[in-house]
Lab assay of single mutants.
Amino acid sequence: ATNIVGKVKWYNSTKNFGFIEQDNGGKDVFVHKSAVDAAGLHSLEEGQDVIFDLEEKQGKAYAVNLRIK
Results as ranks from 00 to 15, higher is better:
residue 1 A to W: 11
residue 27 K to I: 13
residue 20 I to K: 00
residue 49 D to F: 15
residue 1 A to V: 07
residue 1 A to C: 04
residue 36 V to I: 10
residue 6 G to H: 01
residue 17 F to K: 02
residue 53 D to W: 05
residue 38 A to D: 14
residue 8 V to D: 00
residue 18 G to M: 02
residue 31 V to I: 08
residue 66 L to M: 05
residue 59 G to Y: 06
residue 16 N to I: 02
residue 23 D to E: 11
residue 47 G to S: 09
residue 67 R to M: 06
residue 25 G to Y: 10
residue 44 L to Q: 01
residue 14 T to I: 09
residue 32 H to P: 04
residue 40 G to A: 11
residue 55 E to D: 11
residue 30 F to Q: 02
residue 50 V to Q: 00
residue 53 D to P: 00
residue 4 I to N: 08
residue 39 A to Y: 03
residue 32 H to G: 08
residue 55 E to C: 04
residue 24 N to K: 13
residue 20 I to P: 00
residue 65 N to W: 03
residue 25 G to Q: 10
residue 63 A to E: 00
residue 6 G to A: 05
residue 67 R to K: 10
residue 19 F to A: 02
residue 27 K to C: 04
residue 59 G to Q: 10
residue 1 A to E: 07
residue 59 G to K: 08
residue 38 A to C: 04
residue 41 L to W: 06
residue 9 K to G: 03
residue 40 G to N: 11
residue 13 S to Q: 15
residue 45 E to Y: 07
residue 30 F to C: 03
residue 34 S to R: 07
residue 56 E to G: 06
residue 63 A to R: 00
residue 50 V to M: 06
residue 13 S to Y: 14
residue 2 T to Y: 10
residue 35 A to S: 11
residue 50 V to S: 01
residue 6 G to P: 00
residue 15 K to M: 15
residue 24 N to P: 11
residue 46 E to A: 11
residue 15 K to W: 09
residue 31 V to G: 00
residue 24 N to D: 14
residue 59 G to S: 11
residue 51 I to Q: 13
residue 39 A to F: 03
residue 52 F to D: 00
residue 38 A to R: 08
residue 11 Y to E: 01
residue 63 A to Q: 00
residue 60 K to H: 14
residue 36 V to A: 04
residue 38 A to K: 10
residue 63 A to D: 00
residue 51 I to R: 09
residue 57 K to N: 11
residue 40 G to D: 08
residue 2 T to Q: 12
residue 5 V to N: 15
residue 6 G to M: 01
residue 17 F to S: 03
residue 54 L to G: 02
residue 31 V to Q: 00
residue 2 T to N: 07
residue 47 G to A: 08
residue 69 K to M: 11
residue 69 K to A: 08
residue 6 G to K: 01
residue 30 F to D: 01
residue 13 S to D: 11
residue 35 A to V: 15
residue 69 K to F: 09
residue 59 G to T: 07
residue 1 A to R: 07
residue 63 A to G: 07
residue 68 I to Q: 08
residue 30 F to N: 01
residue 3 N to M: 10
residue 29 V to R: 05
residue 56 E to P: 05
residue 3 N to D: 14
residue 58 Q to W: 10
residue 6 G to W: 01
residue 28 D to I: 07
residue 57 K to M: 09
residue 50 V to T: 05
residue 53 D to F: 03
residue 25 G to K: 13
residue 48 Q to P: 02
residue 49 D to A: 10
residue 12 N to C: 04
residue 69 K to P: 06
residue 53 D to N: 06
residue 31 V to P: 00
residue 52 F to C: 03
residue 22 Q to H: 12
residue 39 A to L: 07
residue 47 G to M: 09
residue 17 F to L: 03
residue 5 V to H: 13
residue 53 D to V: 03
residue 22 Q to E: 06
residue 5 V to S: 14
residue 66 L to N: 00
residue 10 W to Q: 03
residue 29 V to P: 00
residue 1 A to G: 09
residue 65 N to E: 05
residue 2 T to R: 15
residue 68 I to K: 15
residue 69 K to H: 12
residue 65 N to T: 05
residue 63 A to K: 00
residue 43 S to I: 11
residue 6 G to T: 01
residue 30 F to W: 05
residue 21 E to T: 15
residue 13 S to H: 15
residue 36 V to G: 02
residue 69 K to R: 14
residue 33 K to N: 05
residue 40 G to S: 10
residue 26 G to K: 15
residue 41 L to F: 15
residue 11 Y to N: 01
residue 25 G to C: 04
residue 37 D to P: 02
residue 47 G to I: 03
residue 40 G to T: 05
residue 17 F to P: 00
residue 22 Q to D: 13
residue 42 H to Q: 09
residue 36 V to S: 02
residue 16 N to W: 10
residue 55 E to Q: 13
residue 2 T to E: 15
residue 56 E to F: 13
residue 34 S to Y: 15
residue 18 G to I: 01
residue 50 V to D: 00
residue 49 D to T: 10
residue 67 R to Y: 06
residue 59 G to V: 03
residue 12 N to L: 13
residue 58 Q to L: 12
residue 58 Q to I: 12
residue 45 E to R: 12
residue 45 E to K: 13
residue 67 R to F: 05
residue 51 I to C: 04
residue 1 A to D: 10
residue 13 S to R: 13
residue 11 Y to G: 01
residue 51 I to G: 06
residue 43 S to E: 10
residue 22 Q to R: 15
residue 19 F to Q: 02
residue 11 Y to R: 01
